Amino acid sequence: MISTYVFGAIVLSALVTWVPRVLPFVLTRYKALPDLVVRFLSFLPLTIIFALTLSSVVSPKVGQLPKFLPIETIAVLPTFFLAAKTKNILLAVVVGVVLVAGLRFIF
């Protein structure tokens, strides 16, 4: 049997996860955001993808300059080119994964 403490922790965790994702939709359902906020939010997907990509390509060490990982850096260039040309993120992700797998297999 599940204890009330564990059940309460699961319910509280679900709420903490769910509320920040649903609350913005509820708050902006009937009221539009200012143009400045909409313009700012339009840049978020690009910056998030760049941050995730940079963290995958660079290997940081404390007290040293970051080093670029050679295989991942080589794979990023054609992947970005493909994403810019086709505007298809799913295809770019698949090509990037295949490129990294192929380069790791060769090297």
Rank of each mutant, 00 (worst) to 15 (best):
F7I: 09
F7G: 14
G8F: 13
G8T: 09
G8A: 06
I10M: 08
I10N: 04
V11S: 01
V11E: 08
L12A: 15
S13H: 13
A14W: 15
V16P: 03
V16G: 02
V16L: 03
T17E: 07
W18E: 11
V19Y: 10
P20H: 02
P20R: 02
R21Y: 15
R21K: 08
R21C: 10
R21S: 12
V22M: 04
V22T: 10
L23N: 09
P24H: 05
P24L: 05
P24R: 05
V26C: 06
L27D: 10
T28M: 13
T28P: 04
R29V: 03
R29Q: 07
Y30M: 10
K31M: 08
K31D: 09
K31H: 14
A32C: 09
A32R: 14
L33T: 04
D35T: 07
D35S: 04
L36V: 12
L36C: 03
L36S: 11
L36F: 08
L36H: 11
V37F: 05
V37R: 05
V38Q: 06
V38L: 10
R39E: 13
L41M: 03
L41N: 04
L41K: 04
S42R: 09
S42N: 08
F43G: 08
F43L: 14
F43A: 05
F43V: 09
F43I: 01
L44K: 13
P45W: 08
P45K: 11
P45T: 08
L46Q: 10
T47H: 07
T47V: 10
T47C: 12
T47W: 14
T47L: 05
I48R: 06
I48G: 09
I49C: 12
I49Y: 09
F50L: 15
F50I: 09
F50C: 08
L52I: 15
L54T: 13
L54G: 06
L54I: 13
S55H: 13
S55R: 15
S56M: 15
S56Q: 14
V57M: 07
V58E: 12
S59H: 06
S59Y: 11
P60L: 05
P60K: 14
K61F: 05
K61W: 02
V62S: 07
V62A: 12
G63F: 01
Q64K: 15
Q64L: 15
Q64I: 10
L65A: 06
L65R: 04
P66V: 04
K67G: 12
I71G: 00
E72Y: 09
E72P: 03
I74F: 06
A75L: 00
A75R: 01
A75N: 00
A75D: 00
A75V: 04
V76A: 13
L77G: 00
F80Y: 10
F80N: 11
F81V: 13
A83Y: 09
K87G: 07
L90H: 13
A92L: 02
A92W: 00
V93S: 10
V93D: 01
V93W: 03
V94Q: 02
V94S: 01
V95T: 07
G96L: 02
G96H: 01
V97D: 00
V97H: 01
V97G: 02
V98H: 04
